[in-house]
């Protein structure tokens, strides 16, 4: 008599990518949901406040000195000006916490992926499940932050609803890329690479002031970095500004997602299937 596990596995046999994908990334999500229910929610909730604190302190504190700002969409408060940037940043942070430190822990300390890959799951199931979880966290932060913006009266049009899908695309890109890089990291020290990279990227991203303060070459670099792209995407989506630029931003993230998934799967395979 064959067991259910064998019958299920044989059903996928011979299909495309069957060695890497069992078609069950949702079980990896379920695992994270179980831990979230019991204790991890505290960490998740705490991460939500960071952009809110930036918004309140910078938006209303420095906003008092700065006054209103004239943009292509009109004369807006400083808080409203920095809102899209902070939204993109919160999506990035939410996605990065799960896809970097949490993934590193599961990879090296708790040996969770090793356990998962001893079953009939494949590395792509693990990669997709973990990335989906990370992007859900990013998406959750973005949604909550959009609600805060609405509550503070910083949202002026219904286009602001597009902030959520835009932020999810941003979170997906960061989650995928973050997990791929993490899977190549060998020690805690190397993990600090993320901090070295992420903080300056945030501070110089143009979230707090227009990029025109920088020389042309610096503007080009900042715009080419993922957060620069993310802020552009969220800002335009919230303003209902659809054009070729938006398409470029979206394509940028799709490439990031695919490259990240490819390398994560490849690396997990090399780590646990060799």
């Amino acid at each position: 008599m064959t067991s259910d596990a064998v019958a299920l596995s044989e059903r996928r046999q011979g299909k495309f990518g069957d060695k890497y994908f069992a078609g069950r990334p949702q079980q990896v999500l379920l695992r994270n949901w179980l831990t979230f229910k019991s204790s991890a929610w505290i960490a998740v909730v705490s991460g939500f406040f960071e952009p809110v604190l930036y918004l309140l302190s910078f938006g209303y504190g420095i906003g008092e000195l700065v006054g209103n700002i004239s943009t292509s969409t009109g004369n807006i408060s400083y808080a409203a000006y920095i809102a899209p940037g902070l939204l993109a940043t919160s999506a990035m942070n939410g996605a990065m916490i799960d896809s970097t430190w949490n993934v590193f822990f599961k990879l090296n300390e708790s040996r969770l992926y090793k356990a998962m890959l001893a079953t009939s799951l494949g590395p792509l199931d693990v990669a997709l499940g973990e990335i989906a979880w990370a992007l859900m966290r990013g998406g959750l932060y973005a949604t909550a932050f959009t609600l805060v913006l609405a509550g503070l009266g910083l949202v002026t049009s219904w286009w602001a609803l597009l902030a959520v899908p835009a932020a999810i695309i941003v979170a997906f890109g960061f989650a995928s890329f973050g997990m791929a890089i993490t899977s190549y990291m060998k020690s805690h020290h190397q993990m600090n690479f993320f901090e070295i990279f992420l903080l300056p990227m945030f501070l110089f991203s143009g979230a707090f002031y227009p990029l025109t303060v920088f020389p042309g070459w610096a503007q080009a670099i900042i715009k080419a970095l993922p957060l620069g792209q993310g802020i552009e995407l969220v800002t335009k989506a919230m303003a209902g500004d659809f054009g070729i630029h938006l398409l470029v931003n979206v394509t940028y993230f799709i490439v990031m997602i695919c490259v990240g998934l490819y390398f994560t799967t490849k690396r997990l395979n090399a780590l646990f299937m060799r």
Binding site: V6, Q27, L30, T35, S38, M116, A118
Partner: peptide
């Protein structure tokens, strides 16, 4: 899918309870 694996170093899911560990492991097999 035919194998039960008990590795040298325990890789139980330390964030979950005893029964949740069995539950989710079964889910990994579908």
């Amino acid at each position: 899918a035919h194998l039960g694996v008990v590795p040298q170093q325990d890789n139980l899911d330390s964030e979950l309870t005893v029964s949740e560990n069995i539950f989710i492991y079964g889910r990994y097999f579908g």
